[in-house]
Every structure is written in structure tokens, then in C-alpha cells.
Design a protein around this nucleic acid. Structure first.
Lengths: 247, 247
DNA sequence: TTGACAGATATGTCTAGACATATAATCGTG
DNA sequence: CACGATTATATGTCTAGACATATCTGTCAA
């Protein structure tokens, strides 16, 4: 954060736009530790002078940094580098096909079971709904280069997702189908570890007692549960990677 | 998304600001599924007319939605609801004390080992650095209500974090110390499952062969690795919860 | 000492324009 | 019909102001 203005207005072609430059400069100063948490960022009018631009431009840069939780803005006081409270990592879970093909491996899919039926009380409990409607229960396996990659055990609420009544899950995996047919949802993931029981071990091709990573995911939209899924991964080979960012 | 303008300019006191209102209205239309992925959002000039405001105000609302990856803006074409490509969940990992006390349980900490020494080649490999410097190797255990909660095995690069040379990790857990003394970092988490070996089982108070959730975290700042930590949790009792959001 | 009140000040929101730029759509030509 | 050039259009960035609002600071009186 030591460069002065020199915008040049004429040959401002290749450089990113000015507000992005400002944003980037400040971000760099924070991320390198030059400006520690609590440090006050230069006032808007100082940045205006330094970059030779209007207040709106500076403000746009600062607003984006605030939206990204990198800084905190306080009226009359100024803007400050935020103190990271926790390590928050963004865990990106693509659908299985994308995840496997991204690794450069061939994707395989096998449907074990797909039953459409009236919801049992166990189903209702799992979906967190009260009234009994119709559901689809699906069990399937994903493989990478013909080696079992994960097994999936899923329940879809047909009252919330009526289109799933006619979908053919023998052809398209339910996760992928849902991702492409059901718009914008919220989800909660629970990650735990178990050892493989007999059924799981057989389906995953591992020994009984081998470690498995388990992900339970509930997906809903506006307070309606759409689907509940449990995924088992062989724990010694699979890794969930979550990158970025202190905050 | 059906209200018309009626800003009233005079009594615009209690309502949130206009751009937030616009942002919220659009967000709601997307999240309820009313506007599915691919749907084109009204043009800026239409929103200007609907809300009776200037283009900058509309633009600010749309820019924030774009920054949050909820919409995609394309010149000449308009703005569109984004298709969720993956389920991305934000995994918040507080330091251990905060995590345990947040559960309403009493926090306990026990230091097993804390050695400051020149880095071995194994240390360098783990930290991903080439040259050999000094490191701290720490092994400790966190407990909740006197029951083992997690064991921690950590390496800190003293060249990158010289303040750690004098820190007393018998008093303060290293994770908590780092969070409060080392500003703004980036991190990569790898989550996997293993079965407890003899040493781990003894430290965690579980049976040999019991499932364990393992989190490996590398933390760095501007390409310098600061610390590498491996955490073992008893897999059948501990759960990592990641909430939110489709995208 | 304390509390109420009046500035001072930095950010928060907003306007009515401007020009730049990417690209969808159209038109013309071979 | 295919393809390249042109045009129209929606967004991208930016300005030079404006008034609102939260909050820190200092002053003056009870």
C-alpha cells in the first residue's frame, strides 16, 4: 500500500478498474499482515487523494471488502481490519459426477434400489416433516475408474419435489438430477466418521471395520425439506478439501 | 417481487435503505424458486422505474447479489439467476475452547509435549518448506466436561512465527494462541476418517479400531506456511456441522 | 462529578448525469 | 445460406455533488 496515484486517465486500458485496484491494494496489505487486525484503514478522503478519484469509487472498494468480512466500517470512526474470529472454510461439494471427472477419472453409476412409496414414520422423522406424503427412497453407488467411490442413501419428498415422481434415477444420479432441476436451496451438512458394517463394506469394497467418512445432508427451500442424503466414503482414500480463508 | 414503488421520500425513516430493499426482494424471488436458475432479472431501467430511483441504486443491489454468486451479470444480455454448480457449505471452525464452551460444557486442556528444535526433513515436508529452520512440535488434548474431545498434533514454523518462541503453550492452547496473535491467514482443510491406533485410542479414551474424524489444517500467509495441525476426534460422538448455502 | 447538549466528522445512501465496453441482433454481401 | 461488419443495448465504471445518520469530543450547567 505504498503506491501513489498516477492514474493517467489516457492509458488506463490494461489495468483493472480503479476500484478493483484499490480493493486489491488494501486486501494485500491485510493479507500480508502489514495491516494487522484492528488497524485503521486510511479514511475515504485520504484514499480519494491518493488515487485521485471520487468518494464513490473508494466507497465501492471498501464496501466490497466489508461484504467479504475483511474489514469493518464504523461511522465517524473509520474502517478497520477485522479480527478473524474463527477459521471458516468453504467446503464445495459438487455433484458426484463433476467431482470425479474433475479428478480426471471415469465416472460410473449404479442404482441399487429406487422405491416410490407413502412415507413411513421413520421417513418423516428423517425428513423432519410431520404429515405423511409420498417419498422416493434411493440407494446407489458412484465409482471412479470402476472402483467404488461413495455409496448414497437418499430420501426425496415427492410433495415438495413433484417432478421427481417421473424422473428416471436409473439413468441420472439423484444428486445430479436434483442439482439441475431444483433451484436454490439451503443445506446443512453433518460430517462424522464410522466403521464399515457388513452391508457398507460390501458395497464399498472395503473390509468390515474399515473407516468411513459419512456426510449427512439435509436440503430444504423456505422451510420445506426437499431431500435427506447420507453418503459413505472409504475414509482412508477419500479426502474432503476445504480451502480459504481466515475470518 | 410484486410491490410497486411508493418510496415516499419523506417518511423513508424506518424501512431499510432502498438498495437493500431491492436486494432483498430479488433474493426472495430467487430463494423461493419463483425465479428459477437462468431466469432473467428485470433490466436495471425497469427496476429504476419500479422503485423510482436512479441506476446507481439498482446497480448497487445487483452488484452485491453478483458478489454473493446469486446472480450473473452479462453485458448487453442482462442479469440472470445463477445455476447452482455445487453445494458450497461454510464450515466454521472456532478454536477449541470457544467450540466447547459454546456447547455449554467445561473446557479442559492438557499439554502432552512441546519441543522447540531444528526442523527435520519430515517437518519440512509436512510444512511444505524447503530450508530447515526452527520449529515447535506440540501434542495436546482438549476435553469437554473432563471427557477427551480431540487430540492435537501441531507443528509451528518459528521462522514465520517468531513470537511463538516465547509463548507458553502449557497455559494457552496453541490454536487459541495463534488465532489471537497471528492475523489474517489462509488455510486448507483436509477431512478424512481413520480407525484409532493404539496411541490415539489411549489419548482419546476410545477402543483401538474405533472410528476417528481427522482434520488436517495447513495455515499460511503470503505463501509461507505458518503451521500444520492434525486433529483427531472420536468419530462416533463428534460432528462437524456446515450450514448454508446453495450455490 | 456528572449529565445534557451542541458541534465535528466519517461513513451511508442517493442522484443525474457521463463515457466505456462487451455482445446480441441485425443487415449486407458474397 | 454463411459470414463479416454494423448497430443497438445493457451493463461497468466513474464523477461531483447532496443530505442523512451514527458517534466521538468538547463545553457548559446542575
Amino acid at each position: 500500500m505504498s503506491l501513489t496515484a498516477d492514474r493517467g486517465k489516457v492509458e488506463a486500458a490494461d489495468r483493472p478498474t480503479l476500484y478493483k485496484q484499490i480493493r486489491h491494494d488494501i486486501e494485500t496489505s491485510i493479507l500480508t499482515g502489514e495491516w494487522p487486525p484492528g488497524h485503521r484503514i486510511p479514511f475515504e478522503h485520504q484514499l480519494m487523494a491518493r488515487y485521485g478519484c471520487s468518494r464513490m469509487t473508494v466507497s465501492k472498494a471498501l464496501s466490497e471488502l466489508a461484504q467479504a468480512d475483511l474489514i469493518e466500517r464504523r461511522r465517524r470512526a473509520g474502517s478497520f481490519v477485522r479480527r478473524p474470529q474463527h477459521l471458516s472454510a468453504v467446503l464445495k461439494i459438487s455433484d458426484m459426477r463433476a467431482e470425479i471427472t474433475a479428478l480426471g477419472r471415469s465416472y460410473g453409476y449404479q442404482l441399487f434400489r429406487c422405491v416410490r412409496r407413502a412415507a413411513t414414520s421413520a421417513d418423516c422423522a428423517r425428513l423432519g416433516v410431520r404429515k405423511t406424503g409420498k417419498v422416493v427412497a434411493i440407494a446407489c453407488r458412484h465409482s471412479a475408474d470402476n472402483v467404488p467411490f461413495a455409496i448414497e442413501d437418499r430420501l426425496i419428498d415427492l410433495d415438495s419435489v413433484p417432478e421427481a415422481t417421473t424422473a428416471d434415477f436409473a439413468v441420472e444420479p439423484p444428486g445430479s438430477w436434483l442439482l439441475h432441476h431444483v433451484p436454490w436451496t439451503e443445506a446443512e451438512h453433518t460430517i462424522s466418521a464410522v466403521v464399515a458394517d457388513e452391508r457398507t463394506a460390501a458395497a464399498l469394497g472395503v473390509a468390515i471395520g474399515a473407516p468411513c467418512l459419512v456426510i449427512d445432508r439435509y436440503t430444504w427451500r423456505s422451510a420445506r425439506t426437499l431431500t435427506a442424503v447420507r453418503l459413505h466414503y472409504p475414509g482412508d482414500t477419500h479426502r474432503l478439501v476445504a480451502r480459504f480463508k481466515g475470518g
